[in-house]
């Protein structure tokens, strides 16, 4: 690949991710509204929200780390997008595999955690404490799922995983139990009810977002778009054969995001302990079962 091509991908992949992420967010809000028998937000509402936050005339900063945290958060997700193969563009996927990607996805969380920490607001710190606890909860089933998938495909390279699925069959069909466990895990990763412990508006005043104003909050909204996109693309690449073209890739992403959203609306919020117990019991059990099947199949 030429340098120009790579540079183009470096710009284009995050930009596409952001745009698709906007519509994923819109879909989430729309579906929630429709289930609650509301009309829901207008078509470009997520975009208006972000622009409005960025053009706020005043915003507070609690110090350099508060700013740096936001930058690290944006940078971390932009990096993750470049290591995530999409139809027609594989970015740097061959230079860093799925393990790298999973750990790259933790960098923005760390950035957020640092930024929130500097705000000196205990609500924010409690939010981060809960977010990290939730991460410990959902990453265990998720890692089992990843391990099972990698064992099955015999590689940790995402492009190869996608190619294998295209030549054989989708991971969803060859590893249905792992796919189910993975779906539950990504539901928790998205931080939607009942796993919404770290936002918890009525309890800890939206946790990490408590002291975020103007473009700080706007960057968090951008992060939300990128986060939903990254998680859905990862799931699609592992179990739904990635994308042949953009025309089947995008519907898959929306489908993956749709399932958690449909479920989430009918749930209240779990306690932190219950999130841990539930995620360590059911999805982890399912994932281990799926892993055992993969190992026994050879």
């Amino acid at each position: 690949m030429s340098g120009q091509h790579i540079f183009l991908e470096l710009i284009l992949m995050p930009l596409l991710a952001f745009m698709i992420g906007l519509f994923l967010v819109l879909m989430m809000r729309k579906v929630r509204a429709r289930i609650e028998r509301r009309v829901g937000p207008p078509f470009l509402q997520p975009l208006w929200d972000i622009i409005k936050l960025y053009v706020k005339k005043m915003q507070i900063s609690h110090g350099v780390i508060h700013d740096l945290g936001i930058i690290m958060l944006l940078g971390g997700y932009i990096t993750a997008e470049v290591f995530l193969p999409v139809p027609g563009m594989s970015g740097f996927t061959s230079q860093g595999d799925i393990i790298t990607l999973i750990y790259l996805m933790m960098v923005p969380s760390l950035g957020l955690a640092l930024g929130v920490g500097q705000c000196a607001n205990p609500n924010g710190s409690i939010g981060i404490s809960r977010a990290l606890t939730a991460m410990l909860a959902y990453d265990i089933p998720f890692i089992v799922v990843i391990a099972g998938a990698c064992l099955y495909y015999g590689t940790t390279d995402l492009t190869e995983i996608i190619a294998l699925q295209k030549s054989q069959q989708w991971g969803l069909l060859s590893m249905p139990i792992l796919a189910l466990a993975g779906l539950i895990a990504i539901h928790a990763m998205l931080g939607k009810e009942p796993f919404e412990i770290y936002v918890a508006p009525a309890e800890i005043a939206t946790g990490p977002m408590v002291e975020m104003s103007g473009k700080y909050l706007g960057s968090l909204f951008v992060m939300q778009c990128l986060q939903i996109y990254t998680i859905t693309v990862l799931y699609t690449s592992l179990f739904l054969g990635g994308g042949y073209t953009w025309f089947d890739f995008i519907p898959k992403l929306f489908l993956v995001a749709l399932l958690p959203v449909m479920i989430t609306v009918i749930f209240p919020r779990y306690k932190t302990d219950d999130v841990l117990r539930w995620l360590w019991k059911w999805p982890t059990g399912l994932a281990l079962l799926g892993l055992a099947i993969v190992v026994l199949q050879g």
């Binding site: 960025y54 053009v55 005339k57 005043m58 915003q59 507070i60 900063s61 473009k215 960057s219």
Partner: peptide
């Protein structure tokens, strides 16, 4: 972060 949007104030 720095180019877009308006200035911030440290509190």
């Amino acid at each position: 972060f720095f180019v877009l949007g308006n200035p911030r104030k440290q509190v």
